[in-house]
């Protein structure tokens, strides 16, 4: 889990604890497979949350600028929806066949589930949980640098 809080340490309230449980404990999925993720949110008053975003995304890491692709995006900002999605819920998505998770030399592709909470006070809190699609062998190293 990689929690990220955009607030400062001085005045922020306690950070929520978001637990995420994948239906595959290894967190490795086949392309086109169904992803089922259960989550629970603790340490925050549901009344303090004005919206929630549940996403399944891929992003690049490495030398280049980060690129982000959204496979599934769901924003819940109505009272009834939030009451249903908090303090726990489930994310279900059919995974695409590409791009597959990849550990290259200067290009890496990661898949993750992100749960972002928007507080009434204006802050937001995102919790990121990485998983893998496919079983691609990592790149071994640089054979040649192209000028």
């Amino acid at each position: 889990m990689i929690p990220h809080d955009e607030g400062t340490a001085a005045s922020k309230p306690p950070a929520p604890r978001i637990g995420v449980y994948f239906d595959h404990p290894s967190r490795r999925y086949a392309p086109g497979e169904e992803l089922v993720v259960r989550y629970d949110v603790e340490g925050v008053d549901p009344a303090a949350i004005q919206a929630m975003e549940r996403t399944v995304v891929w992003y690049t890491e490495g030398k280049g600028e980060e690129d982000l692709g959204v496979h599934r995006f769901e924003r819940i900002d109505d009272v009834a929806g939030l009451a249903e999605a908090l303090p726990d819920g489930t994310i279900v998505a059919w995974l695409p066949v590409s791009p597959l998770s990849y550990e290259g030399v200067i290009v890496k592709i990661r898949w993750c589930v992100r749960i972002r909470l928007f507080f009434v006070a204006g802050r937001d809190f995102v919790s990121e949980h990485v998983f893998e699609i496919g079983d691609i062998a990592p790149a071994r190293g640089v054979v040649e640098r192209v000028q």
Binding site: G64, G104, V143, R145, V146
Partner: peptide
Amino acid sequence: EEMASFRQGTDTRTERVIVWR
């Protein structure tokens, strides 16, 4: 070949490496 573009100051640079041959 892996290719990555990134900003360095006001320039946009592209790095290319062959990772398998």
